[in-house]
Computed example of a mutant assay.
Amino acid sequence: MQTACRSWHPIDIVRSLESAAPAPLQRVSVLDLCTSTNDYLLSRRPPIKDKFNLCVAAAQSAGRGRHGKTWCSNHRGVYLSVSWRVVSNLTNGGWLLLMTAVRLAESLRVLGISDISIKWPNDLYYKDAKLAGMLIEQRNKTAVMGLGLNIATPPATAPEAKTSWVGLEQTGIAVPRYSELIALVATAALAVGEQIDFDEGKRRFSEFDMLYNRSVEINKQGKKISAVAQGIDRQARLLVDNEGQIDAYGYGEISVHNDGITDRCRQQPL
């Protein structure tokens, strides 16, 4: 296994988190290795009301994304999760996931990454390669948001190197210290309780929407549907134009057709 990070200093990480956290932390766990930071927090008692638990790991042996896909977590990257207490099933998980992606994209743009976009519902892309991803889960009274941000790409000999991944080191920015990156990612996740109305959230998301007015293919339970992406609705579902009919999808595997942008105006209405 390649070293996950060259500057893994738990004390510095905890200090950065405590000074930058926008929400009160009950417990911070800094691990050298775990199966996944989501699993680690889901296996423990939820924090008390209005507080969060946070777990960050140098590497994960079984990191994952949506639909059970593997998230490579043994090269240099930021891998963390936050958990909070819920009293019932999450009904706005899609919205929370999308707004977390927006906050992280905004923070990375401040660092100087201009060509960044969000592929609905949970992936951040730099140009045409995946830079970050996130996953929201719930078990009983514990809700967890996990985030992964690539710093470096996998080595050329790794199987995952065949996929279109990119790290911060390939974006041309001066990459911050590792503890600062962890604080940046954690800040995006810990603001999950922030109240954002639909109009504001839609406006902020539209600045990064990778799919808008592009020909996409939706794979939903083995059924493939070709349509044109048209933004999101109030439940953060993907809206698509299917031969003049607007449909909404809350889940599904999304791929972009090679023909890319349609002949329609690329500007998304706010």
Rank of each mutant, 00 (worst) to 15 (best):
W8L: 11
K127W: 08
N38V: 09
L211H: 08
N92G: 02
I232D: 00
G63S: 05
V256Y: 05
Q267D: 13
E106A: 12
I48R: 06
D199F: 09
D128F: 05
A248P: 12
N53D: 15
Q245G: 01
K127T: 14
A152V: 04
L135C: 09
A152W: 00
D241N: 15
I11K: 07
Y212K: 03
L42C: 08
E137M: 04
Q221C: 09
N219G: 08
G63H: 02
A191L: 14
S179Q: 14
S73T: 10
R264I: 09
L42P: 02
V56Y: 08
L149C: 02
P24K: 03
G65M: 03
G63M: 02
I118A: 02
W120C: 03
L239F: 06
E200M: 12
V78T: 07
P121T: 13
Y178C: 06
V185H: 05
L135F: 06
W84Y: 12
H257V: 06
R237W: 13
L131E: 03
V56H: 01
T262A: 05
G65K: 05
M210W: 04
P22V: 13
P10S: 13
F198G: 08
K119E: 14
R103N: 08
I246L: 11
P22S: 13
A227L: 03
E194G: 01
Q268T: 13
A4F: 01
L25V: 07
M210E: 11
A21E: 04
A188C: 09
A57L: 09
T187F: 05
W95D: 10
V228K: 00
R264A: 14
R15A: 13
T37S: 08
L98I: 13
Q235M: 13
N258L: 15
L33G: 01
L238N: 00
